Simulated scan of single mutants.
Amino acid sequence: MDKPVKISVHVNEDEWMAFKNYVLTKYSYHWKYLGEELSKAIKLYLSQVANAHTQENEHIISSLVLTKNEE
Rank of each mutant, 00 (worst) to 15 (best):
K20H: 11
N21F: 08
N21W: 04
N21E: 15
Y22D: 07
Y22H: 11
Y22K: 10
Y22E: 11
Y22T: 06
Y22S: 12
Y22W: 06
V23M: 00
V23L: 06
V23R: 00
L24I: 05
K26R: 10
Y27K: 12
Y27D: 03
Y27F: 13
S28D: 15
S28P: 05
S28M: 12
S28G: 15
S28A: 15
Y29P: 06
Y29R: 14
H30E: 11
H30K: 15
H30S: 09
H30G: 02
W31I: 12
W31Q: 14
W31F: 15
K32C: 07
K32P: 03
K32G: 15
K32T: 15
K32R: 15
Y33V: 01
Y33N: 08
Y33G: 00
L34E: 01
L34W: 08
L34I: 03
G35Y: 04
E36C: 10
E36V: 09
E36N: 11
L38T: 02
L38G: 01
L38W: 02
L38Y: 00
S39G: 14
S39H: 04
S39V: 09
S39L: 07
K40Q: 13
K40C: 12
K40P: 05
A41V: 07
A41F: 06
A41T: 10
A41G: 02
A41S: 10
A41Y: 10
I42F: 04
I42T: 02
I42Y: 07
L44Y: 09
L44D: 13
L44P: 01
L44R: 14
Y45Q: 00
Y45D: 01
Y45A: 04
Y45R: 03
Y45T: 00
L46Y: 11
S47F: 02
S47K: 10
S47N: 13
S47V: 12
Q48C: 03
Q48Y: 09
Q48I: 07
Q48N: 10
V49M: 02
V49H: 08
A50M: 04
A50Y: 07
A50I: 08
A50S: 06
N51F: 04
N51S: 01
N51Y: 09
A52S: 08
A52Q: 13
H53N: 05
T54A: 11
T54M: 04
T54G: 01
T54F: 05
Q55H: 08
Q55Y: 08
Q55I: 11
E56D: 10
E56G: 05
N57S: 11
N57P: 01
N57C: 12
N57K: 10
E58P: 01
E58S: 10
E58W: 03
E58A: 10
E58K: 07
H59W: 03
H59F: 12
H59S: 08
H59P: 00
H59L: 08
H59T: 12
H59R: 09
H59E: 06
I60H: 13
I60S: 02
I60T: 07
I60D: 08
I61Y: 12
I61A: 05
I61M: 02
I61C: 13
S62D: 09
S62F: 10
S62E: 14
S63R: 02
S63M: 04
S63G: 08
S63H: 04
L64V: 09
L64M: 14
V65S: 03
V65G: 04
L66G: 03
L66W: 03
T67K: 14
T67N: 15
K68P: 00
K68Y: 12
K68M: 07
N69A: 13
N69Q: 13
